[in-house]
């Protein structure tokens, strides 16, 4: 079923293909960034939030990437466990720090949006709380990776952790939402990205995805070469 994938899963083939794609992807990322910034700063102020919608343009994509990158990590971990392929190992490992940064950015920008809108830097509402837990899941995964010396073993063990986390995330989301309704009666105002704000947001979202793909590919390529370097040094 995945034959087509494995033709590119050969590290040498992967290096060739990704090397050819990356300049185009970087250019596309730069172009979307410029467009998104232009559209965002040209957007009219919202009648409720004023110009703080500008924060939402970068907050919401970061929050979406926080979960999307974890999904990428889980898929790579599955391949790592089932097919025991080195490319999958490296892909899962390099995705984690990127996901952690996106999650951190979602938390910081969310807090900077919340201060003028809610009057406090932090609110224990469902979405903020699950994002915080998600951040800790990334940290645990990264810590475990760095603690295990043998790379292949670390890949398999961390893959198990990523999968356990994936099973648990929906439960955490459910429990956090349940807990949030338990503790606050009034509903708080949440960001709204409709009408004239939809297009700038979507372009910025596209930029975040392109940036992630570029960074992910670059990191995978770096780790593959580092591995080759180590084997060369070992042989010499």
């Amino acid at each position: 079923m995945f034959d087509w994938l494995f033709r590119y899963a050969n590290p040498a083939r992967f290096m060739g293909l990704s090397g050819a794609l990356l300049p185009w992807l970087w250019s596309a990322a730069l172009l979307t960034l410029a467009t998104a910034l232009y559209l965002g700063f040209s957007a009219p102020p919202d009648y409720q939030q004023g110009r703080t919608v500008l924060i939402l343009f970068i907050h919401v994509p970061a929050a979406i990437m926080a979960t999307n990158v974890y999904a990428c990590m889980v898929v790579a971990s599955l391949f790592s466990l089932i097919n025991r392929h080195i490319l999958a190992d490296v892909a899962a490992r390099t995705a984690a720090p990127l996901g952690a940064i996106f999650t951190l950015l979602a938390l910081i920008t969310g807090s900077l949006w919340g201060k003028p809108m809610w009057g406090t830097w932090w609110v224990w509402d469902g979405r903020l709380t699950s994002t915080l837990v998600q951040f800790f899941l990334y940290l645990g995964y990264i810590a475990l990776w760095n603690a295990i010396e043998d790379e292949t073993r670390a890949a398999r063990i961390c893959a198990v952790l990523a999968l356990v986390g994936a099973v648990n995330i929906p439960i955490i989301k459910f429990s956090v939402d349940w807990w949030a309704t338990l503790h606050q009666g009034e509903s708080i105002m949440s960001g709204n990205l409709a009408g004239p704000f939809l297009v700038p947001f979507l372009v910025m979202m596209l930029f975040y995805m392109l940036l992630f793909v570029c960074l992910w590919l670059t990191r995978i390529r770096t780790l593959i070469l580092e591995r080759r370097l180590r084997s060369l040094m070992g042989a010499a």
Partner: peptide, 30 residues
Amino acid sequence: SLTLSLRRGGLILPLIVLPLLVPAVMFGAG
């Protein structure tokens, strides 16, 4: 089981287990 071969497993264990236990603490206190 994941940290059993680590010398400093005792430090990493809470970091990877506590986020997974969030639902238990919430429901229990609930």
